[in-house]
Amino acid sequence: MNTLTDALRHATTAGLDRLDAQMLLLHTLGRSPHDRAWLIAHDSDPLPAEADARWQALLQRRHAGEPVAYLLGEKEFGGLTLNVDARVLVPRPDTEVLVEWALDALPLVGGQTPRLLDLGTGSGAIALTVAARRPDAQVTATDASADALAVAEANARRLGLPVRFAHGAWLAAVPGECFHVIASNPPYIAEGDPHLNALSHEPISALTAGPDGLDDIRQIVAQAPSALVPGGWLLLEHGHDQAASVRALLAAQGFDAVGSQQDLAGIERCSGGLWPGAR
């Protein structure tokens, strides 16, 4: 019978990242995927036959390109553990840059409730992290996908976070409402981009947006002014080479203080602007 060390060695020899292999093996054994200390302490334990069958099935799915987060059913983001599956994109660490900017942009003025809108919420990563960090804020999250909203709503219930959800495409989901901050990680990959091959297990509707990847960002930039209070912020995540184009769209629409912020790799990953006027 194989030991846990044998199982990991086989997986890494076959090309699986060692950390991914450790997390999947722990998951197979019914333990926290982050309990690597236990795995080291029990490396000579035998892998039970029924666990080995589950392990082999997970390895096959991973070798086929399925994200580790889908295999585990969860992903850490912003200090929260979010349940994820093939109905939503896997939250990326770079999006935490957008969350921090949104938190900085929310007003701290007494006597009013700061309002944030997360457009295209997916698993709820942005909205739920803001709600956890700013319990005084009123957070609304939308998505055009009913399946994605079901995932986000389930995460909110499990985490006990009072986010309001609305179904619909971009600002059409919240007609007549105004917010201090609108944040969005919309689809921004160009149709036909070769990078899509590595993302084949994630929902294509949450990834691509027209020939240059900017179709959805154009819609949001055009619609956002009617849903922002004077002095409100629109903050957008985008592709690694789209910052200049997004800043140009914001400036042309009349936003002030247009700028970009870098992700963990030093790439301009988010751009935003201030809608003119005092709060």
Rank of each mutant, 00 (worst) to 15 (best):
T3K: 00
T5R: 04
D6R: 00
A7I: 12
A7E: 06
L8E: 07
T13V: 15
G15L: 10
G15A: 10
D20R: 01
A21T: 14
Q22W: 12
Q22R: 11
L25W: 12
L29S: 00
P33V: 04
P33C: 06
L39A: 01
A41Q: 07
W55N: 01
Q56H: 03
R62F: 15
Y70N: 03
K75W: 06
V88D: 05
T95N: 03
V99D: 00
D104R: 02
L106A: 02
P107T: 08
V109L: 14
G111P: 15
T113N: 03
P114A: 03
L116S: 00
D118C: 07
G122H: 01
V130F: 06
A131D: 10
R134L: 14
A137V: 09
V139L: 00
T140G: 02
A148G: 11
V151M: 09
V151N: 04
A154E: 09
N155C: 07
G160Q: 06
P162G: 02
A166T: 11
A166N: 12
H167Y: 11
A173E: 15
F179E: 05
A183Y: 14
S184K: 07
S184E: 11
P187A: 04
A190D: 13
G192I: 15
H195G: 04
L196A: 00
L199K: 01
S200L: 09
D212T: 05
G213Q: 02
D216F: 07
I217E: 03
V221P: 06
L235C: 12
L235F: 15
Q242Y: 09
A243S: 04
S245K: 03
A248T: 15
L250G: 00
G254Y: 15
G259F: 10
S260D: 12
Q261D: 12
Q262K: 01
D263V: 09
